[in-house]
Design a protein around this nucleic acid. Structure first.
Lengths: 154, 154
DNA sequence: CTCGCTGCAAAAAATTTGCACATTG
DNA sequence: CAATGTGCAAATTTTTTGCAGCGAG
């Protein structure tokens, strides 16, 4: 019984993640589903302990160790992004579009993170410089900190 | 006596850093100089313990605690960049040019890091999207992982 | 059934804090 | 001299590891 809330229909992120896990031959377990769902419902990046706590609030229970192990897997599958400035992981909802690239803007005030949908490989100035250096990029991370529109008017 | 090696003339990075520290009213102490010089001579990013070890190799001695405290200061003054993929700090040699922006390419093979000299605020695609979102950026970090030219031919 | 995943206990590593003493400016 | 910064000890926090038992496929 690795069913989270029984016949709750999964969100796009969770179903995609499950597919991806299955595709790689990993098992779909209840702790993993709980973690995916919790990540999916969080606006803010969560680190291992915060994630465990958040899962606990939903009534389920996961060991921090499993959170660590699961986060490691999710990161490898590009299902979550690590957000440096918030020290936490965020569900990657644009998954599949830009491969292992992540571009996000993080509001220092409200902490909200928004993924950008620029393809970094297509960013003229950047890719130009990369190719002139003969550098073969395999992963690009762009993190912009600042103040978002709604927080701007204080 | 906060003189590192007596009358050794400081490299641009170290002198600039000292100036910046002085400008903010911070003291120029020997542990700090040792840390700055060690960072300056390292091609690879160093974390607190690696940095302490590296300083020790030069004959000087610093407590890890001081390394942590100093790194914190240097980070605040934008004198070092944190490199996510290597989990370490790197002397910021392009300092002053792009303010609190950092763009670097990290070779997964040799670990070398090179700073790019693109001004992210001028990256057309990026700044366009930021302004259309009404986001006021205060710090931009771009990290590109991949394989550098010299490592490419294996 | 079997192998992967989980929880628990515990070890190891990383980071922080308090405080007396040393040093810089 | 008066802050500031340093080292040392120790507390905390974070992350990793080993292993027996459960559960997904």
């Amino acid at each position: 019984m690795a069913d989270s809330g029984s016949k709750v229909k999964k969100t796009p992120f969770v179903s995609a993640a499950i597919e991806k896990l299955r595709g790689v031959g990993m098992r779909i377990t209840s702790p993993r589903i709980a973690i995916l769902e919790t990540l999916d419902q969080s606006d803010l990046p969560l680190n291992a302990y915060a994630l465990q706590e958040a899962v606990t609030l939903t009534g389920k229970k996961v060991d921090v160790v499993s959170v660590y192990r699961t986060l490691k897997v999710l990161r490898e599958l590009d299902l979550v992004h690590y957000v440096q400035s918030s020290d936490g992981y965020l569900a990657c909802r644009l998954e599949g579009e830009h491969g292992s690239a992540s571009e996000m803007i993080v509001c220092d005030t409200c902490g909200n993170v928004m993924e950008l949908d620029i393809d970094p490989c297509a960013m003229t100035d950047l890719s130009e410089q990369l190719s002139s250096l003969g550098f073969k990029a395999s992963r690009i991370t762009i993190e912009v900190e600042g103040v978002c529109k709604s927080c701007d008017g204080q």
